[in-house]
Design a binder for these strands. Structure first.
Lengths: 357, 357
DNA sequence: CTGAAAGCGCTTACAG
DNA sequence: CTGAAAGCGCTTACAG
């Protein structure tokens, strides 16, 4: 990286700011009381001439109300901000969830403070505490799955809570989930319908709810079809694309390889695709991924995937949260957002006697 | 979506919280003064027996300090949170920038409030004002490029400011940029070296700084090589993948098609790839994208791309910002993060007489 | 060292 | 309707 220090021709040193004008300054300049300024700033008209004098003083001073101070005294104590705890804001899936949350929050004049737990329960607690300390109006959480009982106190204190992508563990709270079992099941049935019986499953860490659920969907669909579950075809704890690629390679070069592979998540999907193509068996082994990936339709064959609706997950979670913030005190609600199956070719390949030619 | 209302067997109504314990409650329970509680909570030991009594009361009540109130009275007025204004947190590029910012902020016990402007100057101003109203300790901004003079007042008021991905327009402030001109230039030279002279350029909205800069890098590299710039090969204002795909199709089916194409950004890259493959000329027309895309290396040919370092952009911007927050008052700094060229095949195809067979 | 008092920038009863 | 006073939950001079 290149750093350039421009010669500071401007004498105004950044950071050496003037004191920010307060409501008191506005009152003094306008020649009215503090209460009057407060009322005008909050949209209460009052006497038109006073309102105008206040407005003029506000403009002149460039006054901007301190919302944190206002929140302190306000009856509702609302900070007009909510917290969102995800595994990693840099992961496109969670980035989309965040975007969904932001969209709904924006409509409520609320800002979103997002944090990444990196699947670390300790970080999750830390971030949760940091958000609570800032008195957010509510919390949307993708729990790491370890133990969210630390939120019980917040619950007691009346902090609105919503869970998204994964349910709470020791808590009864509003939750929005993808249809993980249904999505994985649909993928398996899709492959079974084309004659596959040796279907491998590539799963993420089993500590993660979605990972367990998709495995369950896989198992249940196989059993429902009368097909046995071959544990040798199940590879779990794949937490990187590289790990998924290695596991795929291992499966396909084994003595009795699968004729089809189901990947359980976006990083795993990318890793598995790498392995299939590098082994040159993309036309031999059927493949269905979980989560869509940008160029999946350009590949040959196109990659058949189970799609989720991450933006909708975020939106629904935010909607449930704001209902609570608005005082809804009814029973806990749980929303399931459906998954889809996008057929593109890789999932429609017929079974071959051997995964590797 | 499916909604389920679980029968509320638990009588505790969510949201009907007990009053959150305050420092006063802790003082009462511990039998000490408010000042003592404040000191203990802030890590000042004092008399060990009192400290222990306070700690016990804190634990018993589940007391958690209100950081917003603390900030109000504190000498430094630090909110331990910063604002980040990007075009769209749901775009993987900006999601990565956010992640970089968060990483650095976390090390400073600061949270990040991110917002999406959607390239709308009005939204940018609105979000900026909302962040200022919450008294963030500093602001990192990806400006829409319209007019950021609205930040002059904040600058005066001493709010630390840093710009990332795009520079400010009417302001002198710290800024972190990718080497846009260098990246586009390297791509063009790479193609020129392989004998291409008819190189098309697919650009985003010219209101966006990076878009203009990459076009400039393209022009300058062509001129420096003594190759003329054919304006007919330049397509701009492509703000979606679909628009980029359509423009690519148009270019390649024209009377005198280009022998190579340079895409200026991730969405444009994806759209152009779609068009190239659907026309079946991925082996005929050389292609270099801007920004890496997950499966770019699996395609045949692999997609040669100019890479940026979005996480590093965010990190560096946050570092500059925290330097200001820490009181650094030196001249404005400007950091350029280098781009890379990842060679995978599409950019190494030789020129063909016609883009279309 | 601890505690009583003042005050951060606001809002909100309460008089007038 | 407006204004003076109290108070939100804390921190910080200031006495003792």
């Amino acid at each position: 990286m290149t750093e350039t220090e421009e010669a500071a021709d401007a004498p105004e040193v950044p950071g050496a700011g003037v004191r920010r004008p307060t409501m008191k300054d506005v009152a003094a300049l306008a020649g009215v009381s503090l209460s009057t300024v407060s009322r005008v700033v909050n949209g209460d008209p009052g006497r038109p001439d006073l309102a105008e004098r206040v407005q003029r003083a506000v403009d002149l001073l460039g006054y901007q109300r301190d919302l944190t101070a206002s929140m302190l005294r306000r009856a509702d104590r609302a900070s007009a901000s909510i917290g969102l705890l995800v595994a990693d804001v840099g992961n496109p899936f969670f980035a989309a969830v965040l975007r969904g949350v932001e969209d709904v929050a924006r409509g409520r004049h609320s800002l979103t403070i997002a944090g990444s737990s990196d699947e670390d329960p300790h970080r999750e607690r830390e971030l949760g505490a940091a958000l609570i300390a800032r008195r957010v109006d509510g919390l949307i959480i993708v729990p790491t799955g370890a133990d969210d009982s630390y939120l019980l106190a917040e619950r007691q204190a009346g902090v609105p809570l919503a869970f998204v992508d994964r349910p709470p563990r020791y808590l009864d709270a509003d939750v929005v989930l993808s249809d993980n079992v249904g999505g994985a099941g649909a993928a398996v049935r899709h492959l079974l319908d084309r004659g596959h019986t040796r279907i491998a499953f590539l799963g993420d860490r089993q500590r993660i709810f979605t990972s367990r659920e998709r495995l369950r969907g896989y198992r249940e669909a196989l059993l429902a079809a009368g097909t046995g579950v071959d544990e040798a075809l199940i590879r779990l704890e794949l937490d990187t694309s590289a790990a998924a690629a290695a596991a795929t390679r291992e499966l396909l070069t084994a003595a009795e390889p699968p004729t089809a592979v189901l990947a359980s998540q976006n990083l795993v999907t990318v890793g598995a695709v790498h392995a299939l193509w590098s082994l040159g068996c993309q036309h031999e082994v059927a493949f269905v991924g979980f989560d869509d990936v940008p160029l999946a339709d350009v590949l040959d064959p196109g990659i058949t995937v189970v799609t989720q609706q991450p933006v909708a997950l975020g939106q629904r979670a935010a909607e449930l949260l704001f209902d609570r913030i608005d005082g809804y005190a009814g029973p806990t609600r749980s929303v399931v957002v459906p998954t889809g199956l996008v057929v593109r070719g890789s999932g429609e390949l017929p079974p071959r006697s051997s995964g590797r030619r």
